[in-house]
Design a protein around this nucleic acid. Structure first.
Lengths: 350, 350
DNA sequence: CTGAAAGCGCTTACAG
DNA sequence: CTGAAAGCGCTTACAG
């Protein structure tokens, strides 16, 4: 066997470098190594630098488990996800975990269909710095179980009244209002709404804002298709049901973009009508496909990056004080006008 | 303050239950508690049951960090993700992490734009049981760095020749062949291909199979649009470029579904042509939107569930033996025929 | 400025 | 069948 080959084999089988190895190598105690690597100014600058160099040379990496055991902070963020059919969530997930990675935090994913019962034990085992619920459809009841685990909670894109949890949301009420105003201004008269999951705060707030905006504009009450979920099928079937109830409908606001795409497809394929000439369609989220020519969907863009920064702020707050008082944030969305809701009756838009 | 309120406050401030607490409560040593909870048959059945009950009563949860420190296995799976614009990946991510959760494994997410340099240190800190690369676009060079960290690697939907890593892929070559055969059978004569990322094995293999199938069918060589990525824009622009080069093209196979949707939109909006009457379109993946009426996309469905099970098999293998020899799996995809590639020239399909 | 010692919460030889 | 002891790799009072 050749030298190089042998060396490589050895390297990968060798045990990880520990503070002890560095201590021996640098001729100091492990305490000094630990302090030097933490950049503790109590250690002589010269010693600190020498140890830091050595550690780097030797390829030292602190052991995650030893560190987690001794420190109070685990350095873990638990991210709960259940509904990932809406592409909005994967995007948040990736951006958020990238951001956390930069802060030297580790992201652990937990999923659950029916609830989070099996996840709460995991929380207790790991004791994360904070748990983030990235799942609009999660039942509120489980929040209590989370609270029992004594982990700070951040709800993303969801708000639960009275819960001991921070919440970071788009201003869904404001967004619904923007949509109503826009539709009223552009000459639509017979508005409708297709619900997603009725129990989700996003759904309820978007509808609330929409109703307020409609009311303020002096338009008649909208026709509401209720009792769905945030799916393409809800949009498709909901649109069909709405049209059967009232053929005068000339604008439909959908609880999110996926629903809006379903409704659009129904309008074109099933009802044989045109968008926006016959019916205007508006969604919510501004996911990637909303801007594709085949959908060209008017929608309310969620301020995703701001929302993520806000999550970071909350995490820092909870790291400083585990039982900091939870806060709620409602960040304004932006109406993005595309072809699906241009002005009615041939008038020029903008 | 009322009793109930006070109790709750106490509960959440109380320190976690440890083996020591159980030992005291049960009147045995911590060793016995540890063994009993591990269901070690050396402990008397009666003792074991009593301790297990007590632990349950007291709401004991083993400390993840203490356990990780003492055991050889971390119980962590590191999941690397970088490109999540293709909805195929989020779906895999959620299904996979759900599956891992059932196996009492924890999923940690790592992301990286430019590569994985910053992630390798994390691997060394955490020492996961296995690292899964769920990112078709990751550069091959980084695999070496991964290997240096001595963590077993599983490539999902990607294959790197000669790498010390298991790979679990759809049989992309076979899939490409299926597409070519189908298009030939249905009377298409002037085939084309739109590439995704040229360096991705998925892209290369799908093209290879396509070329083989075309060759076997005796059709002329296809026109290839090369040098893109797996994006909607690549499809849209690629289609435009293809049509400019050769107006006789009557079928386009795209490296994935997202590209296919981009190409479709270009055909309808930009070129003013019909699908499938003028041009047939075929994608790859069978993501959710492929079945939506507005796309109605013929595609090759990846055997996602089988692929995930295969990942589990590999994990178990690596858990038993960290340096088990890596294996490659190529699992057959299924051609899903939808409206975008029905028979040409008005002939009835099937 | 540095070191010896204790301890985080587990598991596992080693005795008995 | 059970317990005392050592140790995983760190951090951090407490001495000096």
């Amino acid at each position: 066997m050749e030298g190089a080959e042998q060396k490589r084999i050895k390297q990968s089988d060798i045990n990880r470098i520990t503070v002890k190895d560095i201590a021996i190598e640098a001729g100091v105690s492990v305490s000094t190594v630990s302090r030097a690597l933490a950049n503790d100014p109590v250690i002589a600058k010269e010693t600190r630098e020498r140890i830091t160099m050595k550690a780097k040379e030797m390829g030292y990496r602190p052991n995650f488990f030893a560190r987690g055991l001794i420190r109070q902070r685990s350095g873990v963020v638990a991210l709960f996800v259940n509904n990932i059919t809406n592409p909005f969530y994967p995007e948040v997930l990736v951006k958020l975990s990238r951001r956390l990675q930069k802060m030297k935090l580790h992201t652990m994913i937990f999923t659950s269909d029916d609830g989070v019962e099996d996840s709460v034990p995991a929380l207790q085992e790991i004791n994360p710095d904070v748990a983030i619920l990235l799942a609009a459809t999660m039942k509120a009841d489980y929040l209590q179980e989370f609270n029992d685990s004594n982990t700070p909670i951040i709800l993303f894109n969801r708000y639960v009244a009275g819960a001991r949890a921070s919440a970071i949301c788009c201003d869904n009420i404001g967004g619904g209002q923007l949509v109503a105003e826009r539709l009223a201004e552009s000459g639509r008269r017979h508005l409708a709404f297709i619900e997603g999951l009725a129990t989700a705060s996003t759904n309820a707030d978007r509808l609330t804002g929409y109703l307020e905006g409609i009311d303020a504009s002096g338009l008649p009450d909208p026709v509401i298709h209720s009792g769905g979920d945030f799916s393409y099928e809800t949009g498709y079937d909901g649109m069909q049901a709405l049209f059967a109830r009232d053929q005068r409908i000339d604008a439909v606001f959908c609880a999110n973009d996926i629903i809006a795409v379903g409704a659009s497809d129904c309008i074109r394929r099933e009802l044989g009508l045109r968008i926006p000439e016959d019916i205007a369609i508006v969604g919510f989220d501004d996911i990637a496909l909303a801007s594709w020519p085949s959908h060209d969907l008017t929608t309310v863009r969620q301020p995703m990056d701001d929302m993520i920064e806000c999550v970071i702020t909350e995490i820092l707050r909870f790291q400083q004080n585990r039982s900091a008082v939870p806060k709620q944030y409602f960040m304004p969305g932006e109406l993005i006008i595309r072809g699906s809701a241009k002005l009615a009756s041939g008038r020029v838009n903008e």
